[in-house]
């Protein structure tokens, strides 16, 4: 379980995260929802130790963040993090060199799934394919948790569908996923838990199936209630 307790983060006087507390379990897809500036990306970056936070605690399976614990988590940012001159096969080699939990076979499987070629150069990929390669690099790790930042941002509908298919595939099965997205309609039916954020605080946290069954509401209905009063 990834657990955030009272996480606070400031840039100067501006509070970005103001006591964020929530949990994300293994085997569940947890979706962080909020408008731009709500703190979604900062939460993921804080979990990964890519941005410092001033207060609170983040634990993964009960342990504080450390290089060993971080091997349990893989992060898929919304920006390409591989060198432009690399070919996909070079990126595979890089990951194989540095990560014990890199799964080369799974990487090839996802490559096939996305209809990409190993010889393609990162700098020559379209925006949709860039997002797919980013996703591939994260999914091909044998990590217990996957953090995805806006995987649908700015890409065409067909690529979005392909990426959404990943969520219902064995590729994320049994793993804990934390995803941030604006395009909630693409994956609404796939997410298990929604965390609604605004101004750096958790406004509402709920299990989607429970709210569907007990209150007959969709995630978007709850979002309307929370954000539009």
């Amino acid at each position: 379980m990834i657990k955030l307790t009272g996480v606070e983060k400031r840039y100067g006087r501006k509070a970005i995260l103001n006591g964020i507390t929530f949990e994300a379990d293994k085997g569940q897809i947890t979706c962080l929802i909020g408008i731009n500036g709500a703190g979604k990306t900062t939460i993921l970056q804080s979990i990964m130790g890519l941005t410092p936070y001033q207060k609170g605690e983040i634990t993964i399976d009960g342990e504080k963040l450390s290089p060993a614990v971080m091997e349990k988590v893989t992060y898929i940012p919304d920006a390409m993090t591989l060198l432009p001159k690399m070919r996909i096969k070079d990126a595979f080699q890089f990951m194989k060199d540095f990560y014990q939990n890199w799964n080369g076979e799974r990487a090839k499987e996802i490559l096939k799934f996305f209809k990409l070629k190993e010889e393609e150069r990162i700098s020559q990929l379209s925006k949709g394919n860039t997002a797919k390669v980013n996703l591939l690099m994260g999914l091909a790790m044998d990590a217990d948790y996957i953090l995805m930042d806006e995987p649908f941002s700015g890409i065409d509908i067909f690529s979005r569908e392909q990426i959404a298919d990943v969520f219902s595939s064995h590729l994320v099965e049994d793993r804990g996923v934390i995803i941030t997205t604006h395009e909630i309609s693409d994956i609404e039916h796939l997410i298990d838990k929604a965390v609604l954020l605004a101004d750096g605080v958790v406004r509402k946290e709920f299990m989607t199936e429970q709210i569907r069954e007990e209150e007959g509401k969709s995630v978007i209905d709850v979002m309307r209630e929370v954000y539009q009063g």
Binding site: P67, A68, A79, M80, L82, L83, P84, I122
Partner: peptide
């Protein structure tokens, strides 16, 4: 500051 933000990858490597 490069075209792709490689620092993400470097800081996430499983090394101190």
């Amino acid at each position: 500051l490069g075209k792709n933000t490689f620092i993400y990858r470097l800081l996430m490597l499983p090394v101190k």
